[in-house]
Simulated scan of single mutants.
Amino acid sequence: MARINPYTIQMQVSRMFQDGQAFFATMKVQDWLKERNEDPAAYDIIFHQKPAPPGAIEAIAIHIELRRRDGQPVDSWLQEEANRHA
């Protein structure tokens, strides 16, 4: 049974970038994809820095962009879930 984490993947990745752990962010997203029964090797994971949403503690938030390597569109629910703030 998977552990329930109250923090979204977007929050965790933003914190990793803030703490200088950006190297591990790709692996974190790959693990997150595995938990959702997706093949991490089927995706390119791209990170974009953006201003954090109003009310956030951090000044910068990391937007996670998923691209399928086979050229098919990424499921919208998966992309939205990757960038959910709370």
Rank of each mutant, 00 (worst) to 15 (best):
H48D: 14
Q72D: 12
R68Y: 04
Y43G: 05
N83S: 01
I60A: 06
K34C: 10
P51W: 04
H48C: 00
Y43T: 08
L66Y: 07
D44H: 13
A52W: 00
K34T: 13
Q10M: 13
A42L: 11
G20D: 09
R84V: 07
E35K: 08
E38F: 01
T26L: 03
H63L: 07
E81Q: 12
P53L: 02
A2L: 15
F24Y: 12
I57P: 07
Q18F: 10
R36C: 10
W32T: 01
A41L: 15
I46D: 03
I4R: 13
A82H: 07
Y7Q: 08
V29S: 05
M11C: 04
F17K: 05
R15W: 11
F23Y: 11
R69C: 09
Q72H: 13
D70E: 06
R84D: 03
E80K: 07
E81I: 07
A56D: 09
M1Q: 12
E58M: 15
P73W: 00
I64L: 13
H63N: 12
Q18V: 12
S14Y: 03
L78I: 09
D44F: 09
E38A: 11
Q18G: 07
Q30G: 11
A25M: 05
E58Q: 15
P53V: 10
Q72Y: 05
P53Y: 01
K34S: 10
H63V: 08
G20I: 12
D19H: 13
R3L: 14
E65Y: 08
